[in-house]
Nucleic acid binder design. Structure first.
Lengths: 191, 191
DNA sequence: TCGAACATGTAAAAGGTTACATGATTAC
DNA sequence: GTAATCATGTAACCTTTTACATGTTCGA
């Protein structure tokens, strides 16, 4: 059947995407890239095998759509069993939340960086957050939103805004403290 | 040498933790559990093999500390090569940020859930966020913080606060919209 | 004496990324 | 004709989780 340890694996992602309507593997990739890249991502290397696996499991069926203005594509559609499996997945225990962040890991080790490099990184991240925020804001008023998809975009905006505000506000303090801390450590190791 | 595709893998995590001072594998796990669980996590099953790998690569050395009030443990210490490797890792390109969130993936597919279940999930997540926030707030004034570690805790607080505020504010609206959307879809499929 | 926390590890399986391989169609 | 985008896939590799295995020390 369909049981896996990680709640939100590519298979579930594909089932969910097909729950929004029939799609090709390419469509699924594009959907997440467009509407969801701030929270999750998946590559073709995992999407296509996942779809074939789901076909073997009888949870989806594929049909070939001949090319008209584009190469021929395979459109997938949930079966009854697929609908049930998806519902089971989504009704299962609410996912335990963890805001994995590579940037924060780096900041955890900030004392190992030179202050100038830290300043550069903070600036780079600030720029990237600003871009992402602008992109997310452009997404809010798109049609085709379900209440849930709009919610995720707005939640992304709230989260990026807060992180950005924190960054702008706290970066100078961090840099000051960092410089002082590095100085102190240096003196200690020279003593 | 030491090159890997993912920037923040367990090996780098271990190197970074040892950059804060000599530690056992157990210590490393506890450190991240205590100070960082909102942003990252690692299990013994990856930490111990990573440490042994790092020893083989000459980036750390281990010594056995005989048990005194506890079982005997292996303390690891960065070598010069280890220090260099860690610095190289941290100085490399700033990590591209993605706020992976299982909860948000679930919300993306919210229209496939019954409204009551959605309400339950929102409430569960709200409770868990509240707990995490309280925990993070208890961490701010701990001693042993470097400017970087304090920054990550405060950033966590900022992010959880914003997400929580968004959740409390937007949940009723989401539930209302969700119920309406489900109704509409049902009518459409009956038509 | 028994459970909780301390402490280290291995092996199998799961899950995903990266690189490679291929080909169609459109716009310049 | 050629670059970009559309479109599908495989295989090797990498990393991590899960489950198992083992033993110590302390406090109730």
């Amino acid at each position: 059947m369909f049981r896996s340890s990680q709640v939100m694996n590519v298979k579930t992602l594909c089932l969910g995407a097909l729950g929004l309507g029939d799609k090709s593997g390419y469509d699924i990739k594009k959907l997440f890239e467009a509407a969801f890249r701030h929270f999750h991502s998946a590559t073709y290397g995992s999407i296509y095998p996942a779809l074939n696996q789901l076909v073997r499991d009888g949870l989806i069926v594929g049909r070939i759509e001949p090319g008209a203005g584009h190469p021929e594509r395979k459109l997938y559609c949930l079966t009854d069993a697929g609908h049930e499996a998806l519902e089971r997945e989504l009704l299962a225990e609410a996912p335990t939340e963890q805001m994995r962040s590579e940037f924060m890991v780096l900041m955890f080790f900030a004392h190992l960086l030179p202050t100038e490099r830290l300043a550069e990184i903070l600036e780079e991240v600030r720029e990237r957050y600003t871009e992402t925020l602008a992109y997310l804001e452009s997404l809010v008023d798109l049609p085709d939103h379900t209440p849930g998809t709009r919610f995720t975009v707005q939640a992304g905006i709230a989260r990026y805004r807060a992180t950005l505000a924190f960054l702008v506000e706290q970066a100078p303090e961090l840099l000051r403290e960092h410089a002082r801390h590095r100085q102190t450590s240096e003196n200690e190791s020279n003593a």
